[in-house]
Simulated scan of single mutants.
Amino acid sequence: MQIIQSNIANLPTKYGNFKIKAYKQNSQEHLALMSENFNPNETINLRIHSECLTGDVFGSIKCDCQKQLELAISYISKNGGMIIYHRQEGRNIGLLNKVNAYSLQDSGKDTIEANLALGFKEDEREYSIVEYILKDLGVKKINILTNNPSKIEFLEKIEKLEIVGRIPTIVEPNCYNKDYLRTKKEQMGHML
């Protein structure tokens, strides 16, 4: 696996000041957003946030992605830690296919059925870059900000990484995302 990485740079945000580092794996570019007081020798509050352009940038309320990202950034700004912005759009089916999946959802399919109808697995993400970033930055102990058991399962397999605890990232459902959240809970095992 060939990975190209940037230097660390400062990134002032509306949530506070952070450090940022980019990693390029094949055609995907991922980010590590670290609090100013980031110290890999301490237990790190970690959010692995899978890219959701429609939610993160455009504020779609068909999902809970933007709310979870905002919750994580705010929490890490106050308590320290890191967000890995995992750029695998639409559970790694890409933006074009994600919009096609949205169209199928408009006609009654849930998120899993839509992915399967397009010829994909329910979740195409892979996390090798996450392991690389954690090792590159020297992270050994984490509190994981997630509701996703697949992310926890992946992290438990990383040698010399200890999961100290889990911090839920539960947000209030709305009339547009309640079925989406129900599918995540009932079919994907999310802890909601």
Rank of each mutant, 00 (worst) to 15 (best):
Q2E: 15
Q2L: 11
I4Q: 14
P12V: 03
K14T: 13
G16Q: 00
F18M: 03
I20K: 04
Y23D: 03
N26T: 07
A32P: 10
A32T: 05
E36R: 10
N39D: 15
P40G: 01
N41P: 03
T43N: 12
L46I: 01
R47D: 02
H49L: 11
S50E: 07
E51S: 14
E51F: 08
C52N: 07
L53S: 12
T54M: 09
G55P: 04
F58G: 09
D64P: 05
Q68T: 04
I73N: 09
S74A: 08
S77N: 02
G90K: 02
N97M: 09
K98T: 01
K98M: 00
Y102W: 13
D106I: 03
T111M: 12
T111Q: 09
L116A: 06
A117E: 05
G119H: 08
F120Y: 10
E126A: 08
Y127W: 06
Y127E: 04
Y127H: 10
S128L: 14
I129F: 09
D136F: 04
L145T: 11
P149N: 02
I152H: 02
E153D: 15
F154K: 05
E156W: 10
K157C: 10
I163A: 07
G165P: 06
I167R: 06
P168Q: 07
P173S: 11
Y180Q: 02
K184G: 02
M191W: 15
